[in-house]
Design a protein around this nucleic acid. Sequence first.
DNA 1: GTGTCTTATCTTCTTACCTCA
DNA 2: GTTGAGGTAAGAAGATAAGAC
Length: 235
Amino acid sequence: MEEGDFFNCCFSEISSGMTMNKKKMKKSNNQKRFSEEQIKSLELIFESETRLEPRKKVQVARELGLQPRQVAIWFQNKRARWKTKQLEKEYNTLRANYNNLASQFEIMKKEKQSLVSELQRLNEEMQRPKEEKHHECCGDQGLALSSSTESHNGKSEPEGRLDQGSVLCNDGDYNNNIKTEYFGFEEETDHELMNIVEKADDSCLTSSENWGGFNSDSLLDQSSSNYPNWWEFWS
DNA sequence: GTGTCTTATCTTCTTACCTCA
DNA sequence: GTTGAGGTAAGAAGATAAGAC
């Protein structure tokens, strides 16, 4: 294209814009909508470049029989429409991701609740032998034995009874044995276990408003102090 | 080098009009 | 025939970048 053509086109663009200004939003009757052919060409160009250089704009306008200003406006509107669609797409993607995460969260929440109740059950089971054994082996005699054991601590007592009492009624040892059998660690870890459960309790998981308060790192840190691999703790 | 003005172009919002259900 | 929603070309206003002085 020659330089003269370029300036003529630019001038015609400006003058046509001025005419439009005078008409104050009144549209010309000759061409309200672009033809299919024009739209197709413009779409094609837009696919490769969303902005037109001035020279290219003039060239396209000439090829399609439009004013350069019309081409410019078409590209402006097209960019705006394209952006709206992109935002819509992004929104849908984000919403899908959110729904996915929310359903995963619900599953994990149920899993956690079942684990907590299982833990409580085991804990009660650990407490039960203490009382049962106490009643079973000691009962009323247990009281006597216990008192005799107490007296043993200070003075003399028949050896047989003393051994029986010390073996069957030593709650601490018994519990520790069970804990060791179940979990493979000693008593002080028991407190940590319950601490972890309490930390991860429903306070932060029951409602989505509190999700921000749920810090899985802190949960993991609780166990990582003694157990570098936290999952081993639960296995 | 810096500040100011001009110009072109952009984005965003709005308007006028058309089409279609 | 009327009406309302949605699409589209274009106008208006404000922001911004680039060039000239």
